[in-house]
Design a protein around this nucleic acid. Structure first.
Lengths: 201, 201
DNA sequence: AGCAAATGGATAGCGGCACTCTCCGCTATC
DNA sequence: GATAGCGGAGAGTGCCGCTATCCATTTGCT
């Protein structure tokens, strides 16, 4: 319970309505917010500072949904201190061009593209120069997944629900994807063993 | 550079060959190992303890590739302290049954299934009971992705390379997937704005 | 040969982060 | 009128990933 006090102090939860100088009242909205914070921390692995950013993006009232999505994405993708390999940057740019992005992309402009370039840089640094070849098939699979995400979000009612569903769908979705991907790998691995059951595999 | 000393102490890097009492020699294999460790920490976000586990799994010589994959998966998916919702557990079991798994699955048996159940539990806790509906489309997309992963790994030569490619492909792949998924979301979001350009979206 | 600079090895310390503890003044309740 | 509990705020804690210091040895330069 002291954790809640801490979250209040950190501004992650709005202060309750003071019914008297030492008695505050918290309603269902507070509880919902608390659970959202815990979800972001526990499943999303976000730091307290990132959670604050995400909540700020959610609570901003004036922006369009599209720019809110952008703000949320920036908040949940904090950049690593990895130095970028110029070749990896080129890989990302080539990927964008294949996707019909004509203008030159600055990967440092967004945390998301930076993350992508950083991952490919690290892959290169350990000798996996051709990891970039996975980008296209990944996108292929992700089109199906993103469509499901959109359908899921479209099933939400109010505008606030949509924002929250975006955050939840993205972060919890990441974790679910991770887990299901592992299961898929294990399944393939088992299939290979079945087809080729020699002990050296 | 003191970080390397630290890694040596923690057993993440093998000690160099002592050519004299105060002079150790490190070869390319050491450098490669160091970069792998950095990759796991920087991109994979693993703790030092998890890295040690992963390296242990990689270095075990006697096991089959399939069981090594299992060991690595366990090591890179440390469980969260989230309490599992029985309904979420049922969701996972139903998912397995749909996939042809006839026998009853114990989700606490593996960190991967536990992670999946935990994610669905948290989703339920914030009112997203139907998040489980995404499992099937996710798997659909992930089949394409997992196939690409397998093809990528199959392109590796030696057995040791295969093990490492599994680790790298899984962890860096997770990060790349995350980033590309965000890009796909942004693209869809932009498309929706284009089709329905009213300021409330 | 002589000496500064570097190395391996070990121990202790630091900084950040996510809490958690404690204290204070007040007030609702018995 | 005692007491239990709340809100609020500052200090303290524990862990983790380094980082700094120290010492004996030894290598390389002159």
């Amino acid at each position: 319970m002291p954790t809640i006090k801490y979250y209040l102090r950190e501004g992650l939860l709005p202060a309750g309505v003071l019914t008297s100088p030492n008695q505050a009242h918290y309603d269902d909205e507070h509880l919902r917010r608390l659970r959202l914070v815990r979800a972001l921390v526990d499943v999303g692995g976000l730091s307290i500072a990132s959670v604050r950013e995400v909540l700020g993006a959610i609570d901003t009232q004036e922006e369009s949904l599209h720019s809110k999505l952008g703000a949320v994405q920036e908040a949940i993708s904090q950049p690593s201190a990895v130095e970028l390999d110029p070749l990896a940057i080129k890989d990302v740019q080539a990927f964008f061009e294949r996707q019909g992005e004509t203008e030159c992309v600055d990967v440092t402009e967004s945390n998301v593209t930076h993350m992508l370039a950083a991952a490919l840089s690290v892959a290169r640094s350990i000798g996996h120069d051709h990891f970039r070849d996975l980008l296209d098939p990944y996108l292929e699979g992700l089109k199906i997944i993103a469509q499901a995400d959109v359908d899921y979000i479209a099933g939400r009612g109010s505008r606030d629900d949509v924002i929250e569903a975006m955050v939840v769908g993205t972060l919890i979705g990441d974790t679910v994807l991770k887990a299901v991907r592992r299961l898929a790998h294990a399944q393939v691995s088992r299939a290979v063993i079945g087809a080729n059951a020699n002990p050296s595999n």
